[in-house]
Design a protein around this nucleic acid. Structure first.
Lengths: 225, 225
DNA sequence: CTCCCGACCAACCGGTTGGTCGGGCCGACG
DNA sequence: CGTCGGCCCGACCAACCGGTTGGTCGGGAG
């Protein structure tokens, strides 16, 4: 009945039926990328079918293969955008000025806010379902999010604000604490999503751990109870 | 030809052909659990088929449904064993005596050593592909690994060894740092797997963060280079 | 000996998977 | 005007999916 017999118009029609009154902003390829990202982050690479993505984007499945070589190619493209977007957001949060403590807190709060950032899932799939070659190419093209943190830690280290520690490791530990919290909160429905309080706790643990000794004063600034 | 026409003997035959000269230890159901665990941790719930598990265990696919209601049931059973095993190992590492610093270091090293503990993947699948009812039942039956850490932190807090912090949160932050490292190391082939040095760094960051103030001396005890 | 039972299997089910193919629409360019 | 190339479509494919069927097997109970 409502099966769109016509050609291109079918896309808009399907979108309307789908109840997705998206602005005309994204069309075709962009829609595929957006909907695909949502589905992959929610369910994982293997659990999402090309048909689902096509339906969500209001596009025929064959169209996906016009824009992307195969499922893996689509996934890698999405991951590339995801990395870039995360990089941009973190960079913005980092560039807002303020103390190191404030900067890190903003980053943590940012990750907590972007609820869809199930970064663990994506990374696991990246390792499990993407060929080593394409994965290496992706990693070379766009750096993982903690790479954005490292230079900040590096500068703080050079300025003597924190004690000697491998900046790369520190960045990864910080990011590890942050994402693991969103992540395990999702496991148990009873556990509420991490909030600003958790963000403060994370930054406190990290900074008072690598602080040069004078940081305890700064810690007092955000003093608990 | 080699197609096993016979009945029960076919299982052992397939195993022999498979080149898996496993000791007679595990048979039938146990084999399924073991092989299933390996496959699920390596590739994720959705990417592993019942046929693969059956083949790996040297068993017919229908036999899986004799022992388990469906794929989800099998997965939950494996996760239960996994939780229990992790709990037991951590409990052992924790019970060996020594300072809190030493205990935590042992736990971190333990996780690093058991390379297969791709806990993130499992947990993500647990959330994405297991019904809320069964997931709640599992969580109620066997506690997640960080629950084993919490009482230790709690005792240390009561003994005044560390400053006031939610023990549950502290345990989760610690575990988050640990598993995130194994985890991201797997993402990039260039990055080596975390070792004892990383374990030391994690414990240092955590303890000197929540330490009562005198811990900086202890940190010097495990001084880098 | 018969009977029963848990473990196990080959064959099969409807449905879905990633991926392909030939062709129709439509704006741009000549 | 024609036609050319980027987008997109319906129809289709072999392979495979989770799950079910009817039935075989060895061994313990009576």
């Amino acid at each position: 009945m409502a099966t769109a017999i016509g050609g291109k118009k079918a896309a808009d029609g399907a979108a309307a039926i789908d109840g997705t009154p998206r602005p005309p902003a994204a069309a075709g390829r962009e829609r595929v990328l957006g909907e695909g990202r949502a589905l992959f982050t929610a369910q994982g690479f293997a659990a999402v079918s090309m048909q689902q993505i096509a339906d969500a984007a209001g596009v025929n499945k064959a169209t996906l293969y016009h824009h992307f070589r195969d499922k893996e190619d689509l996934f890698v493209a999405i991951m590339g955008d995801e990395f870039a977007a995360a990089h941009a957001r973190i960079e913005t949060a980092l560039g807002g000025g303020g103390t190191l403590r404030e900067k890190l807190h903003r980053v943590a709060a940012l990750v907590f806010a972007s609820n869809q950032s199930d970064f663990g899932r994506l990374a696991a799939d990246l390792r499990g379902h993407v060929s080593a070659a394409r994965r290496a190419e992706l990693l070379a093209r766009c750096a993982p999010p903690w790479e954005s943190i490292r230079p900040v830690v590096e500068r703080a280290g050079a300025a003597g604000e924190i004690r000697a520690i491998d900046p790369d490791l520190a960045a990864r530990l910080f990011f590890g604490m942050v994402v693991s919290q969103v992540w395990w909160a999702k496991l148990d429905d009873d556990w509420p999503a991490p909030d600003a309080r958790v963000a403060t706790a994370i930054v406190d643990v990290l900074l008072d751990g690598i602080g040069a000794g004078t940081t305890s004063a700064a810690a007092a600034g955000t003093a608990p109870d």
